[in-house]
Amino acid sequence: MSHRLSKTAAPTRSDAVYFGLRRAIIEQALLPGDKLTEDVIGERFGVSRTIVRSVLARLNAEGLVDLQPNKGAAIAQPSLAEAYDIFEARMCLERQVLARLAEKVTDQDLQLLEQHVGLEAKAGHQDSAASIRLAGEFHILLAELSGNKVLARYVDEVVSRCSLILAMYSRPHSADCSINEHHQIIDALRTRDAARAINAMDHHLQAVTERALLSSNSDKQRDIRSILDRYAS
Rank of each mutant, 00 (worst) to 15 (best):
M1S: 14
S2L: 11
R13C: 00
S14Q: 14
R23D: 09
L31A: 07
L31K: 13
G33D: 04
K35D: 03
K35W: 04
G42P: 07
F45C: 11
F45S: 08
V47Y: 01
V47H: 02
S48A: 08
R49P: 13
R49Y: 08
T50F: 12
V52N: 08
V52H: 01
R53K: 14
S54D: 15
A57T: 12
R58L: 12
N60S: 12
E62K: 08
G63K: 01
L64Q: 00
L64A: 03
L67S: 08
L67Y: 07
P69V: 03
P69N: 00
N70M: 13
K71R: 13
K71T: 10
A74S: 15
I75M: 10
I75P: 08
Q77V: 15
Q77L: 14
P78W: 00
P78N: 02
A83P: 12
D85M: 04
F87Y: 11
F87T: 04
E88K: 00
E88Y: 08
A89T: 15
L93F: 09
E94M: 09
Q96S: 10
V97H: 00
L98P: 12
L98R: 00
K104M: 10
T106N: 02
Q108N: 11
L110Y: 11
E114W: 10
L119W: 02
L119Q: 14
A121Q: 09
A121T: 14
A121D: 13
D127E: 06
A130H: 01
A130G: 01
S131G: 15
I132G: 02
R133K: 03
R133Y: 14
L134M: 05
A135L: 09
A135F: 12
A135Y: 07
G136M: 04
E137R: 05
E137C: 07
E137A: 07
F138Y: 15
G147T: 02
N148W: 01
V150K: 06
L151W: 07
R153Y: 05
V155T: 05
E157T: 13
V159A: 05
S160W: 07
S163K: 03
I165G: 06
I165Y: 00
L166I: 11
L166Q: 13
A167F: 07
Y169V: 04
Y169C: 08
S170K: 07
H173T: 13
D176W: 06
C177I: 12
S178P: 04
S178E: 07
N180H: 00
H182W: 06
H182T: 05
Q184R: 08
I186Q: 01
D187W: 01
A197F: 04
N199H: 09
D202L: 10
H203A: 13
A207I: 11
E210I: 14
R211A: 14
A212T: 13
A212G: 05
L213Y: 10
Q221S: 09
Q221M: 09
R222M: 04
R222Q: 05
D223L: 10
I224H: 03
R225M: 06
I227K: 05
D229L: 11
D229P: 05
A232V: 10
S233F: 10
S233V: 09
